[in-house]
Amino acid sequence: MADFSWNTQSALEKALVPGRHGVAGTQAGVTLEEVRDISLVQVMARRGRAAETAKAAKKLFGIEPPRAPGAAVARNATLIWSGPDQFIVFSARQADGQFAKVSKAFAGIASLSDQSDGRCLIRIGGPRARQALAKFCSLDLDDKAFPLGAAATTSIDHTAMNIWRGADGTDGHAVFNMLVFTSFADSLWHTILDSSLEYGVQASSAHAA
């Protein structure tokens, strides 16, 4: 019997229509990009083992995980604070053994959960990104309040979201990464897009790098 094909499908299969939306003009005020093929590992320190967990992370990634809300960038991964004594390891998806490898490094000192399919990563950038964000995110995303490397767990449309600020875009504007629950992604994409239409939107998807 032949093997089965296991094509993957994004949660934004239908919602994301690449191209230009909303107000037309020379430059889109907002860029929206779904980042596909991501790996997410939720790492939660065992009771009283936060220090050891941090040490193990340092050993594996070369950096300590953030102790307070923030995102720390290592060579192959970004460690994003997601709660007390816990963080998310974000990286590009490679082979299937990825989770096992991370698990091994934290065996006995932290509880891990593979969330690679549990969240959808949407990146928002462009000169009007903050105005669009202000419509669905209650955080103060001003440069001073939310500088490069800042991260937060917050809500969008009454559902939880992890947001962090990565490197600025090539256009020089701030870029915000949003991890939203997969099952909500279709709905939230509509909210985000709707908030951005008045500024003109360029939508696309990309593979995690």
Binding site: S82, G83, P84, T153, T154, A160
Partner: peptide
């Protein structure tokens, strides 16, 4: 209070 829309603490 439960910070369910945030860090779940």
């Amino acid at each position: 209070w439960y910070h369910g829309g945030g860090c779940r603490s």
